[in-house]
């Protein structure tokens, strides 16, 4: 019986130059996406309203008021709790349950997403960015 050929000799060895290039590209992608997403986290003092998009409709609630929102989207029931200036999904009967494990907003600065239920929860502040504000002062000389 012929000796089984080692098929790995037909391919480059693990962690060759090509592999290192792949990992470097993935790392650069990770860093650039993280910077784009989290460079400006929304602080609790600035955050004003919670936007919940589900089933094509959007509901808006003030972040400063504690409340519990029950919603049904795509056949799944979710419970969203707004408490102490943060919002999170406390209960969901979706098969994934990843939405209940996501970091409460606005600490994450991003969004809470439930893909099976097609629900997106974001926190938006009222008004424009601080960079757009121009402070004016009347100077009286004399």
């Amino acid at each position: 019986m012929p000796h089984p050929k080692d098929r790995t000799k037909e391919y480059p060895a693990p962690l060759c130059r090509g592999d290192r290039a792949v990992y470097l590209i993935l790392l650069l992608l990770l860093v650039s996406v993280s910077v784009l997403l989290y460079a400006k986290p929304v602080s609790a003092a600035d955050a004003a309203s919670v936007h919940i998009q589900s089933d094509g409709a959007e509901s808006v609630y003030p972040l400063s008021e504690d409340r519990t929102v029950s919603l049904t989207s795509c056949g799944y029931h979710l419970t969203v709790t707004i408490e102490n200036g943060s919002v999170r999904v406390t209960q969901s009967d979706c098969p994934d349950k990843s939405c209940t494990a996501m970091t409460p907003l606005p600490m994450s600065g991003g969004a809470i997403v439930c893909l099976p239920a097609q629900v997106i929860i974001t926190v938006e502040r009222e008004g424009g960015d601080d960079d757009d504000e121009i402070s004016s002062a009347d100077i009286i000389l004399g």
């Binding site: 480059p12 962690l15 060759c16």
Partner: peptide
């Protein structure tokens, strides 16, 4: 194929 291993 000859640059990147199955791992990459």
């Amino acid at each position: 194929r000859n640059t990147v291993s199955p791992l990459g």
